[in-house]
Design a protein around this nucleic acid. Structure first.
Length: 546
RNA sequence: GAUUCGGUAGCUCAGUCGGUAGAGCAGCGGCCUUUUAAGCCGUGGGUCGAGGGUUCAAAUCCCUCCCGAGUCACCA
């Protein structure tokens, strides 16, 4: 144990010896720090007094003691408030304010950063004008939870000269805790000391709520389907395998919920959606985590064109919500008045405030997104798929030293060329659409081109952020395509991709035409909250065990 | 999987050519009844990611491994 942990345990012992319980059961707070600040805004002396008494609870994040008084900053739900404690009564023109007294004062003196406390009292302003909660009387201070391990509080900001030599350091309390590994492993500590990190996760929740609100507004029914599946499907990915003891069968964590939502459409619901955790047993990088969140929705009697409308509307709605929350949050520090904020909201609503990702603006975000057929994109790069022979395509690959894995097909060549020539340049929102037939077995053939399917994958800031089809509902064709996929699976070294007979049975009973969409919530959050890594939008990203 | 960078005090970091392991903040002991990077005086704290090697001597050089981040590859 470190000296600091020992010191804190010693403090814990002293507190008990003083007859004070360091881990009491509850504290009835009256306001959060944010509400206190709002109520106290612009008010002085007597006006503050008239607001009456406040009870606020939070964690001690700064402690400045000068003998028989102490100024603390406490933080609750990531807002901060200064509180003022004193041992003795304060007597001045305004009257007498009881202090906390000699009985409790020794506890105040040995508070540690990270302790949770409750403070009851009234508001005042210090001579520098900071709104402060002054504890009143012995009941004005309560220890609510002792911290016996120091939080990673301070950050040092260095000043360097021209040669890069450190010539000065500034230390701030409660600023960035920057060891990224520790931040991911100990997210609780990260959140406790980095309010900006906490805010990303508030925004993530806001995004999810906007998506849900949109779907509910459009009469989609929220449903739940199995995470544990005996037959996995709906995507091409390696699954996590587990085992059910009582039934003695293998079960798989879902890689997708697509086939279940389609069963529900067959069952007569005509619009369904589900937020799901999907699990894919693959690599981890800046845009991939083994478990990730998607929302999938299916709409009967619709096609992929209808789904593009939804997709764009959902993203734009969520983005506006995020921009408003960001504007509101920073309004005070930017000196923006209530009227000013209302004006900003109107601008956001009108799509005049840009979405910026990693320092680069998404200029067409609030316009209609480009619909970009793969063949069209390639034509712009001088590759005319329809006018090219198989040999032309093989030469194109060979001359560019690209690598096509698997056997040659026109579709594979087309996607390879797209990935090499077009994908790196994608930044503005675009519906990449009309992929080759062999790209997926779950999609309808394109109504105007038998070599393509009616699929789109939206790309924003160079990331794939979703997937959508005019869903295949012909059970005869579906069986053939799935069987072909099973055959291909057997060729590989990995586990076979089993045929979902039950899904085919549902389709054989009859399925309406439908459009389906999956939206990756994690990447959506990355873009809308301007985070570079998926780990920064997951509260607990997967890490190797310590 | 390949490759680059990183891992030194609770935190953020420095550590030259291989020669007794450092700073600021945090901590501890004092002083201080309006502080806010509080201040002043004093002071403790290290398995230098792990293991092995070279050397009189290793945080530093060499090898292996672990953990993390980035890039590339893989993942329709």
């Amino acid at each position: 144990m470190t000296d600091q942990e020992l010191a804190r345990r010693e403090n814990l012992k002293k507190i008990r010896e003083l007859g004070v319980e360091p881990f009491p059961y509850r504290f009835a707070f009256s306001h959060r720090a944010a509400d206190v600040r709002l109520l106290g805004e612009g008010k002085q002396g007597d006006e503050l007094k008239e607001l009456g008494t406040f009870a606020v609870a939070g964690r001690v994040v700064a402690y400045r003691s000068s003998g028989k008084t102490a100024f603390l900053n406490i933080q609750d739900d990531h807002e901060r408030l200064q509180v003022y404690l004193r041992r003795d009564d304060e007597v001045n023109e305004a009257g007498t304010t009881p202090g906390q007294g000699e009985a409790i004062w020794p506890v105040v003196k040995i508070l540690d950063l990270g302790d949770f406390i409750g403070v009851r009292g009234r508001l005042m302003r210090t001579k520098t004008g900071e709104l402060t909660l002054q504890a009143v009387g012995p009941e004005g201070f309560e220890l609510l939870g002792k911290s016996v391990r120091p939080l990673p509080f301070p950050k040092v900001e260095e000043t360097k000269d021209d040669t890069g030599k450190v010539v000065g350091r500034k230390t701030f309390q409660s600023s960035l805790f920057s060891d990224v590994e520790a931040r991911y492993r100990q997210r609780y500590a990260d959140l406790a000391v980095n309010p900006e990190v906490a805010n990303v996760f508030r925004l993530r929740t806001a995004i999810i709520q906007e998506v849900r609100a949109y779907l509910l507004d459009h009469t989609f029914l929220e449903v739940e389907t199995p995470t544990l599946q005996a037959v996995y499907g709906g995507a091409s990915a390696r699954p996590f395998v587990t085992h059910h003891n009582a039934l003695d069968i293998p079960l798989y964590l879902r890689i997708s919920n697509e086939l279940y939502l389609k069963r529900l459409i067959a069952g007569g619901f005509d619009r369904v959606f589900e937020f799901v955790k999907d699990f894919r047993n693959e690599g981890i990088d800046r845009t991939h985590n083994p478990e990730f969140t998607q929302v999938e929705f299916y709409q009967a009697y619709a096609d992929y064109n209808d789904m593009m409308v939804h997709f764009q509307a959902i993203w734009q709605r969520a983005a506006k919500a995020v921009l408003k929350l960001k504007a509101r949050r920073s309004a005070l520090s930017r000196g923006v008045s209530a009227d000013g904020l209302a004006k900003e909201f109107a601008e956001i609503e009108a799509g005049q405030v840009p979405v910026v990702y990693q320092g680069r603006e998404l200029t067409t975000f609030f316009k209609d997104w480009e619909r970009l057929p793969v063949k069209t994109a390639l034509k712009r790069k001088g590759v005319d798929i329809d006018a090219s022979s198989d040999q032309d395509l093989k030469d194109l690959i060979k001359n560019n030293h690209w690598e096509l894995d698997g056997v040659f097909s026109r579709g594979r060549a087309m996607m390879l060329a797209f990935e090499e020539l077009c994908e790196p340049e994608l930044w503005e929102p675009a519906f990449v659409m009309d992929h080759p037939l062999e790209s997926t077995p779950l999609c309808k053939v394109h109504r105007n081109d038998p070599t393509l399917v009616e699929r789109f994958e939206p790309a924003i800031a160079g990331m794939e952020v979703g997937n959508s089809y005019s869903e295949l509902n012909d059970p005869i064709v579906q069986r053939r395509l799935l069987e072909e996929q099973v055959e291909r699976g057997r060729g590989g070294e990995d586990e076979t991709h089993p045929l979902d007979e039950d899904f085919l049975r549902a389709m054989e009973y009859g399925m309406p035409p439908m459009g389906g969409v999956g939206i990756g919530i994690d990447r959506m959050t990355m873009i809308l909250t301007d985070q570079a890594s998926i780990r920064d939008v997951l509260l607990f990203p997967l890490q190797k065990p310590e």
